Computed example of a mutant assay.
Amino acid sequence: MIQQELWVSLPRMHQQRRMCSGCYMDNKFYVIGGQNERGVDLTCDEFYVVDMNARELVPDMLKDAPVSTSRSPLLVDVVNNKLYSLEAS
Rank of each mutant, 00 (worst) to 15 (best):
V76R: 04
M25S: 01
S21P: 02
L57A: 14
I2D: 11
G39H: 05
Q15S: 09
L83C: 09
S9F: 14
V40W: 02
R17N: 02
V78E: 12
R18S: 11
S70E: 01
D41C: 03
S89D: 14
R55C: 12
S72I: 03
R18D: 08
C20H: 14
P11V: 09
T43S: 11
Q3C: 08
V78G: 04
G39E: 13
V31Y: 05
G33R: 00
W7S: 15
C44M: 02
G22N: 07
G33H: 05
S21H: 09
Q15C: 07
Q16S: 15
K82V: 12
D60N: 15
Y84W: 15
S68Y: 00
L10M: 12
Y30C: 02
R55E: 04
E5Y: 13
S9V: 09
N80S: 07
E5S: 03
S85W: 13
L62Q: 04
L74I: 15
Y48D: 00
M1C: 13
D51H: 11
L62V: 08
G22W: 10
E56Q: 12
C20G: 00
L6R: 08
Y30F: 15
N80D: 13
Q16P: 06
P73I: 11
D77L: 09
Q3N: 06
N27F: 01
Q15P: 00
S70T: 10
N36Q: 05
N36Y: 03
P66T: 14
P59Y: 15
S85V: 15
K82G: 01
M25R: 00
Q16F: 11
V79I: 14
R18F: 09
K28R: 15
Y84D: 07
V78S: 06
P66K: 10
Q3L: 13
D64F: 12
P11D: 06
E46R: 01
K82L: 13
S68H: 04
D45K: 05
D51C: 08
N81S: 15
P59V: 12
E37G: 07
Y24V: 09
E87M: 13
M52Q: 07
E56F: 15
V76F: 08
M13C: 04
M52R: 02
F47R: 02
R71H: 13
T69W: 09
V58M: 13
T69A: 11
Q16I: 04
V31F: 12
P59K: 14
A65M: 06
N81W: 02
G34Q: 05
R55I: 11
L75S: 08
Y48G: 00
V8P: 00
V58Q: 10
M52F: 04
P73Y: 14
V49I: 05
Q16E: 09
P59E: 15
M19L: 13
R55N: 10
Q3S: 09
R71S: 13
E87L: 14
A54N: 08
L57W: 10
D45I: 04
C20F: 15
Q15R: 10
M61R: 02
F29S: 01
S21Y: 05
D64W: 10
P66A: 15
G34K: 06
S89I: 01
N80Y: 05
L10P: 00
P11S: 07
Q35P: 00
S89Y: 03
S9T: 07
D60Q: 14
H14L: 08
